[in-house]
Design a protein around this nucleic acid. Structure first.
Length: 775
DNA sequence: TTGCAGTGAGACGCA
DNA sequence: TTTGCGTCTCACTGCAAC
């Protein structure tokens, strides 16, 4: 029989010596189903050291008796960096041992290289069968019974999947949960600290709260496990679920001999690639992994993200810090606050997940990674999986990751700005400059002409300063991929224009075009990444060089026709508005450079200091567009950021320097009178390496040490919040974690001289205001 | 010992 | 575990002056 199928999760098992792919998802009627596909044999490729493919083939034939795990081998025509080569496809029984087999054959047979032995079998399946997760396909299947999986139906695949033109989403059951753990000193430890509360809520309004009895969490964990299985969510979501909640629950369960079986195959969640925790048959999403979607939130916490999305109502904002949990739990009449707090968190997680999910699903479909890997896979890998799919279609072998020497090259061009306030300034942007350059110059690892190599008959594109050459034809790997991406994005945008903004289809397409844009724009960076399979310094460097040349020419042209250029950074120029001349510029750039430049923002006025990459513009609707300045930096105390924002507002909207000075003074006297909220004094900084690796003593590292002493365990990527106290003279001596200090210890002078004044003067110095005038 | 100029580490943001 | 460009603060070093 034929069925429609929407893929949610993929895995594989080796059953009785032969591998099977397990596809978890939905049929066309909304049933949760499992399709088992046994129609793929694991394999890798082998190439001979010197040209003689037949002899390598024969050697393998002769070895076959000794190597029962090799089930087949064939000579195939492939390409590597565009060059045709012959390779041997070696098929094996067990997918987990491919690298081992490949190495053995390389050693014994003195073969040259192996390829694709490091591709996980489930990814192999997705690529080879051209299956995209989170999308619809058609399968010829046969129903099977007698397998103990938590699904409505189980089928055996009888055909290869066929892509369907169907874009709706099945009705996904999303379960959000939050755990509260008891811990007297610092970070909770599974060995001693019990789980107090688990709050769970699904997108149908089903909710439950599990509470420990006298800090015994055995029943709580069992009940939660049963609840998950009962609700049977397709998507499990929480905040820090991969690093904190699930590992903790698993570890607590293990200690008490509870089988924490919440997987659809009856198993226990396990750690998988990219540090993510896999719950077989479901997609486990961690809001924490979708950091980049909330760049405006500087200190990433669930509450801050919720607030930025307008999900946090003031009456709900009972916020309880980790270190306050015991006091709320131990005092019976306060306990309801804790219960309410946890429930609110579960609700916030559910809300946030719905905004994330649309983008994640489209990204998953586009790059071909399963939904639960989308958050955890770094950008470079997302690009790479996308490229690998394309490579497979055109018979290109996936290059192995090689060691490359560290190499830097010149990047984008940044012009020093003209300081002061300018009126009516327009920003002109090159749209996707790097991808378009890569297309127009056919820049790709497989089109590079090596030095000394003769020019091909089709001719070459020569990068600025004659550094690199790229053949004009045929089209290279990157050009094909990027052309296709750009074409797809413009098709999606075209469809969107016919739809009502905010409609379901519109939102899906919007998420789609965002996914495409992400991959398109990351391709240049990918090419310059040392870890990339398709790394090419020629590609990265030449693209940047042509980029500089492009913007340079644009600036010169703008100035030649009498436009005043205020500033320029990489692919944008800021000019004083003059309609006729701007039209001339757009036309000229299009004709001369073959690239499109588009008017972007118009500022009523804009303020620059001498510094590059920092400015503040006043938008037509009266909002401030602040770029690079302290206001939008996460490593300044809120009090300084507020002062600077106030100053910018007055300076740009009212042009009243005196008033701006007064407002600074007002903030300073509030601080001196200790009226400034304590939390506005906290400075947050990230630990970017293990504490012992730091070469100089820094304030946030010292604060981190104090936290560790007090029982917290910190890891790379954690933000440390500290305040500057009166004790000591060096900054690192004066710093103290904010939760271990209080207002009385604050060094007011530091906040005056090193926080508020510098932030305010950054702007006011432009108007000759000195530090003394702020006293 | 103090002051200070120069250098580098470290964090974060822009395109 | 996408790139380079850039700002800014503070620690550290070495040297001169006290």
């Amino acid at each position: 029989m034929k069925i429609n199928f929407w893929l949610l999760d993929i895995g594989y098992e080796v059953v009785e010596d032969s591998p099977e792919i397990r596809l978890w998802g939905f049929d066309g009627n909304g049933n949760r189903i499992l399709i088992i596909d046994q129609n793929l044999t694991p394999y890798f490729y082998l190439t001979p050291k010197e040209g003689n493919i037949e002899s390598l083939y024969d050697q393998i034939t002769m070895l076959k008796g000794e190597l029962p795990y090799i089930v087949g081998h064939y000579i195939v025509e492939k390409k590597i960096f565009g060059k045709p080569i012959k390779a041997i496809k070696v098929e094996c029984k067990n997918p987990d041992d491919l690298p081992k087999y490949a190495n053995y054959l390389k050693k014994t047979l003195n073969a040259g290289s192996s390829f694709e032995d490091d591709i996980r079998f489930s990814m192999r399946y997705l690529i080879d069968k051209e299956v995209n997760p989170c999308s619809w396909m058609e399968f010829e299947v046969e129903e099977i019974k007698n397998k103990n999986f938590k699904v409505d139906q189980i089928y055996l695949a009888k055909s290869n999947p066929k892509k369907l033109d169907r874009f709706d989403l099945p009705k996904l059951r999303i379960l959000s949960f939050d755990t509260v753990v008891y811990g007297v000193k610092g970070t909770s430890k599974a060995a001693q600290d019990p789980v107090l509360i688990i709050s769970a809520i699904d997108n149908n309004g089903v909710k439950n709260q599990f509470i420990s009895e006298n800090k015994d969490d055995e029943m709580l964990i069992k009940k939660f496990r049963n609840f998950v299985n009962e609700v049977d969510p397709d998507i499990l979501v929480s905040y820090e679920v991969n690093q904190v909640h699930l590992p903790y629950l698993i570890s607590r369960a293990e200690r008490q001999g509870i089988v924490f079986s919440i997987n659809r195959d009856g198993g226990i969640p396990h750690r998988s690639v990219y540090g993510h925790i896999s719950v077989t048959g479901r997609a486990n999403l961690d809001i924490y992994d979708f950091y980049d979607e909330f760049t405006q939130v500087k200190v990433k916490s669930l509450e801050n993200i919720a607030q930025s999305l307008g999900l946090l109502k003031t009456e709900e904002s009972v916020f309880i810090d980790d270190f306050d949990i015991p006091s709320f739990w131990d005092i019976e009449e306060n306990r309801h606050h804790l219960l309410r707090f946890s429930e609110t968190r579960a609700q916030m997680i559910l809300h946030i997940s719905q905004t994330i999910l649309e983008n994640a699903i489209q990204l998953s479909t586009l790059v071909g990674l399963p939904l639960d890997h989308i958050g955890t896979a770094a950008t470079g890998f997302k690009v790479e999986w996308y490229l690998m799919r394309h490579a497979h279609r055109i018979g290109e072998l996936f290059p192995n990751r090689l060691e490359h020497p560290y190499y830097t090259y010149e990047g984008g061009l940044v012009l020093p700005p003209k300081p002061g306030i300018h009126n009516n300034v327009i920003v002109l942007d090159f749209k996707s400059m790097y991808p378009n350059i890569m297309i127009s110059k056919n820049i790709s690892p497989d089109t590079v002409i090596q030095p000394g190599e003769p020019e091909p008959p089709e001719g070459v594109w020569e990068a600025p300063k004659g550094k690199y050459r790229f053949r004009r034809a045929p089209s290279g790997f990157y050009k094909e991929v990027l052309t296709d991406l750009i074409k797809r994005r413009s098709e999606v945008s075209k469809k969107m224009r016919e739809l009502k903004e905010g409609s379901f289809e519109y939102r899906i397409l919007d998420a789609q075009q965002r996914a495409i844009k992400l991959i398109t724009n990351a391709t240049y960076g990918y090419a310059g990444w040392l870890g990339a399979r398709w790394y090419s310094k020629e590609v990265a460097e030449a693209t940047a060089a042509w980029g500089r040349e492009t913007i340079q020419n644009t600036i010169e042209f703008a100035e030649a026709i009498g436009l005043e250029v205020i500033y320029s950074d990489t692919d944008s120029i800021f000019v004083v508005y003059d309609q006729a001349k701007i039209e001339e510029l757009l036309e000229g750039v299009k004709n001369k450079l073959g690239l499109e430049i588009k008017p972007e923002t118009i500022y009523r006025s804009i303020l620059f200091t001498e510094a590059k990459k920092r400015y503040c513009g006043l938008l037509p609707d009266g909002r401030l567009d602040i770029v690079g300045l302290e206001v939008i930096r996460g490593d300044w105390a809120d009090v300084s950021k507020k002062v600077q924002e106030d100053v910018l507002g007055i300076v740009l909207r009212e042009r009243d320097i005196k008033k701006a000075v007064e407002i600074v003074k007002k903030h300073l006297s509030e601080l001196r009178e200790r009226k400034t909220p304590y939390k506005d004094l906290i400075i947050w900084k990230t630990l970017t390496k293990p504490i012992e690796k730091y070469k100089v003593r820094a304030a946030h590292v010292q604060a981190a040490l104090m936290l560790e002493e007090a029982g917290w365990s910190l890891s790379i990527g954690d933000k440390v919040g500290y305040v500057i106290t009166l004790k000591g003279s060096k900054m690192y001596e004066k710093a103290k974690p904010y939760n271990l200090a209080s207002w009385d210890e604050i060094d007011v002078d530091y906040y005056v001289e090193n926080q508020i004044k510098p932030a305010a003067l950054r702007i006011l110095e432009q108007f000759n205001i000195t530090s003394e005038e702020l006293n």
